[in-house]
């Protein structure tokens, strides 16, 4: 009896052991699998990092090449020149930089006030029915492809410009500013709106309780509190405006030389310079287009840095 029980016990132990081993083995396999999958996820997350590095690397490499080595093009001439004539080996982009900066500044100066006021309306004043019209309208504006803004500019804005402009052509800096203003509106409205909505209710209540009017409350209490959000909306607007290509290309006129002397002048922003010639350019000309891209990239990097700075500051303030 006893020995039989002993044998049974031993047998059971053995079975248990093998079970344990099996479980351990399975666990090991499972852990390995989990590890592999985690690495896969990590790799996917790293695709963005690799992409950013690759984009910066390739564009800068190709864009800075014409300025080094034998037969190098003078970088000062490139950055300060006001004529672009690939057939004569003349590449000056100063007038394009000026065009990009003026167009962006104009669009932001007009677009930010309009956008912030619209956001104020949506967040603070508007009755429900008005919000129901305005918000989808702004979302739709954001979704319209830039080519269609170009069509609108070409079919509506340019003819109007032509009628009121002292010059013979309708394509002008002014037309570009108008279209860019419309294009950055959705960004500014939606970001400012969420910034305004994030302001604690107590601010408004305290201000109203002190006897301030609604408008005073909005402009003296709410907007200052939403400052950093509105600022980042403006910065994002700058980024969008300076990078816009297709819509601008159709209404800018794209002259081959000359600084703009008034808002009626034709301009050639950096982006359109690239898009106009890239499809057929080769050799030095293509490299110069990449160089234009580098300059554009530097602007975008400044915008991104400003953005990071603002976010950091507002986080610190909290």
């Amino acid at each position: 009896m006893n020995s039989e029980a002993m044998a049974m016990k031993r047998e059971m132990e053995m079975v248990q052991n093998t079970e344990k081993k099996k479980v351990m083995k399975r666990n090991y396999k499972r852990e390995l699998f989990e590890k592999v999958v985690e690495t896969l996820f990590l790799l996917c997350a790293f695709v963005s990092v690799v992409s950013v590095i690759a984009i910066i690397g390739f564009v800068f490499y190709k864009g800075l090449r014409p300025f080094v080595g034998e037969d190098a093009y003078s970088f000062t001439k490139f950055i300060t020149g006001t004529r672009w004539a690939p057939s004569e080996n003349v590449y000056g982009i100063f007038y394009m930089i000026v065009a990009s900066v003026l167009a962006t500044a104009g669009a932001v100066l007009v677009g930010v006030p309009i956008g912030v006021l619209t956001a104020v309306f949506i967040a603070e004043i508007a009755p429900d029915w008005a919000v129901k019209i305005l918000k989808p309208a702004v979302e739709l504006l954001a979704g319209i492809p830039s080519v269609l803004y170009g069509a609108f500019g070409l079919g509506v804005i340019v003819p109007i410009m032509k009628a009121i402009s002292p010059k013979v052509h309708g394509q002008s800096l002014f037309a570009v500013i108008i279209v860019l203003t419309i294009m950055i509106l959705p960004t500014i409205v939606s970001l400012s709106e969420s910034a305004i909505k994030a302001v604690p209710r107590s601010y408004t209540e305290a201000s109203l309780g002190l006897g301030a009017s609604k408008i005073q409350t909005i402009f003296k209490a709410v907007l200052p509190a939403a400052k950093s959000g509105i600022l980042s909306a403006a910065v994002l607007g700058v980024g969008r405006a300076i990078g816009e290509t297709m819509a601008v290309m159709m209404i800018a006129g794209n002259p081959t030389a000359g600084l703009p002397d008034s808002i009626w002048s034709m301009v050639r922003p950096l982006t359109t310079n690239i898009a106009m010639e890239m499809s057929y350019a080769s050799g030095r000309q293509a490299e110069m287009l990449f160089a234009t891209g580098v300059v554009l990239f530097v602007f975008i990097m400044c915008v991104n840095l400003a953005m990071t700075f603002i976010t950091k500051k507002s986080e610190e303030a909290k």
Partner: peptide, 9 residues
């Protein structure tokens, strides 16, 4: 933040 024309390049 990168404009699409740079992606194109």
């Amino acid at each position: 933040g990168i404009p699409s024309i740079i992606y194109g390049l």
